[in-house]
Write a protein that binds this DNA or RNA. Structure first.
Lengths: 188, 188
DNA sequence: GGTTTTGAGTCAGTGACTGACACATATTTG
DNA sequence: CAAATATGTGTCAGTCACTGACTCAAAACC
């Protein structure tokens, strides 16, 4: 049994995924996860802030990527096209991580406690994007609205892509933004 | 000390609001709330599913109102205008409850655990609105997008109204939807 | 080779919740 | 009016998530 940092973390993730899918999130105590990973409960909490946090580590990676991508879009581009371009930049990350994140995603979808956390993570992304837009000179009223609406469109695209991988994420993204344009065109 | 149902609930809400603003949400055990309300901890959990749920009871009232309002909009109206009209219908509810909900809202804003729950409640509203739109014949792809985007716009309007009550909520609502229209017009 | 850093174990404790049971007061019913 | 029943609460015991303080062993560094 290796005991060197990262290996333990991986074993914990693996054990948790197995147990959660077997018995469900609420029915598996942290103690059981730790035991299957050959480690103490205390050690679990040294690697993860809490039980819900396990499947949301990559979120910060995504945030950094998106913030950078927003900054890299040519100046003069309007907010929502800027965001759309940034989302396209993140597609490789999603495609690369898909095998890892897919089982977790199914779990999140059917566990209220995890959904709640997932929403909180999305909210963090929205504030990060809001700041990124404001850094580009978007005014304080427009930035939060665009960040929020853009993120929702992005989420819908990734959601559809998760359910049906036959359509590339790039296409889902463009399609979702097209639908957004159409739906809002009906306003006044 | 009356002991008849609803009175206890009110005393618990009052006690919780006081203690949370004094010491903060995380620093006040449920036991302390119950004690100040002259009741046992067990009784607290008979009135509220959990500690975070206290300030979100009215959410179901809002959901029912919005769902009904969506159904009442003349047929043929496009999804987002439908939602905007429904949101306008809920304005009196907000104005009436403002004195009650305002202290709670400030608390939610500065307590991560409560923000998380607040997002979950918003998500519930989104699914309810999605269903309400689909019942009107909006197709399964458009409905979730419109419900989500509409709800965000609504949330931004109410947020601005909470911070500056001098502008009526009706106006904030129209203004936010106008901004949404403008921002999305830049797409494509 | 000794020192410092790092990751883990142990133990004790708090606090959110739950289930089971007892009891008292209100409400319904014969 | 009395018996049955429902409702709201108290009590107690228990589980589980999480934290702080301390110890210890193995690296990593000097």
């Amino acid at each position: 049994m290796p005991r060197s940092g990262e290996a333990v973390r991986q074993r914990l993730l693996q054990a948790a995924l197995e147990l959660f899918t077997e018995r469900g999130f609420d029915q598996t105590p942290v103690e059981a996860i730790a035991a299957r990973a050959g480690v103490t409960e205390r050690t679990f909490f040294r690697h993860f802030a809490d039980k819900r946090e396990m499947f949301f580590d990559r979120e910060s990676e995504l945030r950094d990527l998106l913030v950078q991508a927003v900054a890299a879009v040519p100046h003069g581009t309007k907010p929502l096209p800027t965001l759309r371009a940034a989302f396209h930049e993140s597609v490789p990350l999603f495609e690369r991580n898909r095998p890892i994140t897919e089982p977790g995603a199914r779990l999140v979808a059917e566990t209220p406690a995890l959904q709640e956390r997932s929403l909180a993570k999305r909210a963090m992304l929205v504030t990060a994007l809001t700041d990124a837009l404001r850094a580009r000179g978007v005014d304080a009223r427009t930035a939060p609205l665009c960040a929020q609406v853009g993120m929702d469109t992005f989420a819908i695209a990734t959601h559809r892509w998760m359910q049906d991988p036959s359509v590339p994420l790039h296409d889902q993204l463009d399609q979702a933004f097209r639908e957004l344009r159409l739906a809002t065109a009906a306003l006044k």
